[in-house]
């Protein structure tokens, strides 16, 4: 681990020194040893502030959206999931590849339950790779939880989600953190009487949950950020997983963000498409 962190810091230092990048997004220390926070390194002499450990859980890629017209390339330290987030946002026309310098780092799984099922620990796209690739594992249980949940009756499912959304505090962390939630203006931020507002009640909360899930729909990269950030512990990924499962059942193998060009399943039309569900 220590040589990887040295390699990471010296690479970042060099990229800042030679002007390849304007700044680098990575992880830095907090007050607590088991928690890191996203940091933005602008000066070569600050590269030592970067950390790489079991607690680097925050996604790094979405921060690039804060700076759509950078003077110099934005350096982003990316794990497998972050690389898929980059692909997601390039495919959604939110980021330009030429504005990014991707510092890939194979990931051994972090303090985050979603990492257990991760099928892409190695970055899928990068400009430089730190360390050596790790072994990838197919996760046979990718949709196991959803399959179990599908067995419940409609009423049971409703009851389950109603209880969950009764907890939702409308913080919109699940939206703000999601690399697939990249609309310029979210429908939930538009103001109109009778529209999605800030009132907290079962209807409004569930409408938000449903709409978010559908808007992410076939573009979810399964990074698990929505679920990690939810302060109320809602199992949000179960919704997008359900849609991905249906897509897999109907249209064959489908995973998002593996490259930056594959069309979305729900965004293309083919006369051969299955339509018995319509």
């Amino acid at each position: 681990m220590s040589s990887i962190i040295e390699e990471l810091q010296s690479t970042v230092k060099k990229l800042l020194e030679d002007g390849t990048v304007g700044y680098v997004i990575g992880w830095g220390a907090t007050r607590f040893p088991d928690r890191t926070t996203p940091v933005f390194i602008t000066r070569p002499e600050d590269a030592h502030k970067l950390v790489w450990n079991h607690y680097c859980v925050n996604g790094t890629a979405k921060y690039a959206l804060d700076d759509r017209y950078p003077e110099k390339k934005i350096g982003i330290i990316i794990r497998g999931c972050d690389s898929r987030a980059v692909n997601r946002m390039i495919q959604d026309n939110q980021l330009k590849r030429e504005n990014l310098y991707l510092i890939g780092i194979p990931c051994d799984g972090k303090e985050n339950p979603v990492c257990e099922g991760c099928q892409h620990k190695n970055p899928l796209v990068y400009d430089v790779l730190i360390g050596t690739p790790v072994e990838e594992k197919i996760n046979p249980d990718r949709f196991k939880e959803v399959a179990e949940f599908e067995k419940l009756s409609q009423d049971e499912k409703y009851e389950y989600w109603a209880k969950q959304y009764d907890k939702c505090i409308h913080c919109y962390a699940c939206r703000n953190v999601c690399p697939a939630c990249n609309c310029k203006e979210c429908y939930a931020d538009q103001y109109r009487v009778g529209w999605q507002g800030k009132q907290n009640n079962r209807n409004s909360n569930q409408v938000y949950g449903l709409t978010r899930a559908f808007h992410v729909g076939d573009r979810c990269i399964e990074c698990g950020e929505c679920e990690r950030v939810c302060p109320m512990g809602l199992p949000i990924m179960r919704q997008t997983k359900k849609m991905l499962k249906d897509i897999n059942d109907l249209f064959g193998d489908y995973e998002c963000g593996l490259n930056d060009s594959r069309p979305h399943v729900l965004g293309e039309f083919d006369l051969q498409d299955r339509d018995e569900f319509m």
């Binding site: 926070t37 996203p38 940091v39 933005f40 925050n58 979405k62 921060y63 804060d66 505090i169 409308h170 913080c171 919109y172 962390a173 703000n176 953190v177 950030v229 302060p231």
Partner: peptide
């Protein structure tokens, strides 16, 4: 810079 602009901090 690390803030993602959610309302978690204010609602809790």
């Amino acid at each position: 810079r690390a803030c993602i602009g959610c309302a978690t901090c204010t609602y809790v």
